[in-house]
Amino acid sequence: MRGETGPISELQRLTVSLRGGFEQQNGCLVFHFTGQLDAYSEKQFMEYVVDVLKASKLPAVIDLSKIDFLDSSGLGALVQLAKQCTDAKRAFSLVGNSRVMQTVKLVRLEEFLHLAQDLPSALSNLAA
């Protein structure tokens, strides 16, 4: 890993098809994921995010801009996570690539999931 920069080089394998990691940025916990968020990985995704969130009160950003595939199970996990954050009065935002954004908008969850176009937008929305 020497020579690599950025959070992607630090992602750990959660399942065969999903890697994840987090960093603290601008007073927020920023989670980065790559691969597929689907029926095979949503349980590990939820466990990982919930475990990290337990240790902090910071706002959270879920960055799915490097996710290749999101299915209904993945959407369900995101909804469950959004509900937990709302119940805990924790600010959060979701960032996605065009495929993720299209899927979220198709089921009209963009407001509920606080969908942002990119990471800087998500961070500035949470800072406001």
Rank of each mutant, 00 (worst) to 15 (best):
Leu109Phe: 10
Ser98Glu: 13
Ala116Tyr: 01
Phe92Thr: 02
Val52Met: 06
Ser98Lys: 08
Glu47Cys: 04
Ala55Thr: 12
Gln24Lys: 10
Val95Ser: 04
Gly35Cys: 06
Phe31Leu: 09
Met1Trp: 08
Val104Thr: 08
Val49Asp: 01
Ala60Arg: 00
Gln44Ala: 14
Arg13Trp: 03
Phe69Trp: 10
Glu4Val: 06
Gln117Tyr: 13
Asp68Tyr: 01
Val104Asp: 07
Asn97Leu: 08
Val16Leu: 11
Phe33Val: 05
Gln12Asn: 10
Ile8Gly: 00
Arg99Met: 14
Leu37Asn: 00
Ala127Gln: 14
Gln36Cys: 10
Gly96Thr: 07
Gln24Ile: 13
Thr34Val: 12
Val52Leu: 08
Gln102Ala: 12
Ala39Asp: 10
Arg99Phe: 09
Pro120Tyr: 10
Ser9Glu: 12
Asp51Met: 03
Asn97Arg: 07
Leu53Ser: 01
Gly20Cys: 08
Ala77Arg: 00
Ala91Tyr: 05
Gly27Thr: 06
Gly3His: 09
Gln24Tyr: 07
Arg19Glu: 13
Ala128Asp: 11
Thr103Phe: 06
Glu10Trp: 00
Leu123Gln: 07
Phe112Lys: 09
Lys83Ser: 13
Gln12Tyr: 01
Ala88Thr: 09
Glu42Tyr: 13
Pro120Ser: 10
Leu126Gly: 05
Gln117Met: 13
Lys43Arg: 10
Leu70Glu: 03
Asp38His: 01
Asn26Cys: 11
Ser56Glu: 04
Tyr40Ile: 01
His32Asp: 02
Gln24Asn: 06
Pro120Thr: 12
Gln36Asp: 15
Ser72Met: 09
Gln12Trp: 02
Thr86Gly: 09
Gln80Gly: 01
Leu123Gly: 03
Asn97Val: 06
Ser72Ala: 12
Gly20Ala: 09
Gly76Phe: 10
Asn125Trp: 09
Leu109Met: 15
Pro7Glu: 08
Leu123Phe: 08
Leu78Cys: 05
Gly21Trp: 04
Pro120Met: 11
Thr5Met: 10
Ser56Val: 02
Gly27Ala: 06
Glu47Leu: 11
Val104Ile: 15
Ala116Arg: 01
Asp71Ile: 10
Val104Trp: 03
Ser73Trp: 03
Ser121Glu: 15
Tyr40Lys: 02
Ala55Val: 04
Gly6Tyr: 06
Arg108Ser: 14
Val50Lys: 09
Thr15Ile: 07
Pro120Asp: 12
Val100Tyr: 03
Asp87Ala: 13
Val100Ile: 14
Gly6Ser: 05
Tyr48Leu: 12
Phe33Gly: 03
Pro7Trp: 00
Leu119Asp: 05
Thr5His: 13
Tyr40Glu: 09
Ala39Asn: 10
Arg19Ser: 14
Ser56Gly: 00
Tyr48Met: 10
Ser9Ala: 15
Met101Ser: 15
Leu106Ala: 14
Thr5Asp: 04
Phe45Arg: 03
Ala60Glu: 03
Asn125Asp: 14
Thr15Lys: 02
Lys83Trp: 07
Gly27Leu: 07
Glu111Ala: 11
Glu10Ala: 10
Thr34Tyr: 00
Pro59Leu: 05
Leu11Val: 10
Ser41Ile: 08
Asp87Met: 06
Asp51His: 04
Leu64Arg: 03
Gly27Asp: 06
Arg13Leu: 08
Gly6Lys: 04
Gly74Cys: 06
Ser124Thr: 14
Arg108Glu: 14
Gly3Ala: 12
Val30Pro: 00
Thr103Asp: 01
Thr15Glu: 09
Glu47Phe: 04
Gly21Asn: 06
Gln12Glu: 11
Tyr48Thr: 07
Gln117Phe: 12
Asp63Pro: 05
